[in-house]
Amino acid sequence: MIAARANRVWVQAPGSDGLFPAGETGRESREQKMPIVTIQQGPRGVEQKRELVEKVTAAFVEALAVPAESVYVWIQEYQPENWGAAGKLTADR
């Protein structure tokens, strides 16, 4: 899990019980940090998703100083009839 609060990026490391400032996991520093990023969005093409995963991974590598191999990106896609904004179902816009 990742959240932005008070101009800081907070992450939840696998197996931890809470959110920690980016770069800290609440575990001993000798353990590998493994950020997991979940993106919820409407349907996109596979090329767009490839680029998104590439750029999100690069951002985490830069921000957290972790190897790219440790960054996991999950994409959850939702059809317009399955989400809404501003009180309206997206399919009805």
Rank of each mutant, 00 (worst) to 15 (best):
I39S: 03
A91C: 02
V71E: 04
E77H: 08
I36W: 13
A13V: 07
K49A: 03
R50H: 05
Q40E: 15
S70K: 02
A59P: 09
P80I: 12
Q41E: 14
S29Q: 11
E31D: 08
G45S: 02
G15R: 09
I75F: 10
Q32L: 07
V73K: 01
D92Q: 13
E51S: 14
F60K: 00
V11Y: 03
A65V: 00
Q76F: 15
R93D: 04
P35C: 01
A4M: 02
G26S: 04
E51W: 10
I2S: 03
G15S: 14
R8C: 04
W10D: 07
A22T: 09
E31G: 07
Q12A: 03
A58L: 07
K88H: 05
L64S: 08
N82F: 09
M1W: 05
M34F: 03
R27W: 14
A58K: 10
G26A: 07
G23C: 01
A91M: 07
G26V: 00
S70N: 04
W83R: 04
E62F: 09
R8P: 01
S29L: 11
G18T: 10
R27S: 09
T57W: 06
V61W: 07
W74V: 13
M1A: 11
L89M: 11
Q79L: 06
Q32G: 10
S16C: 06
V73G: 03
G84Y: 01
V11C: 08
L52Y: 12
T90N: 11
G42D: 13
A13T: 11
V11W: 07
I75S: 10
G15C: 14
G42E: 13
Q79E: 12
A63K: 02
K88G: 03
G15N: 11
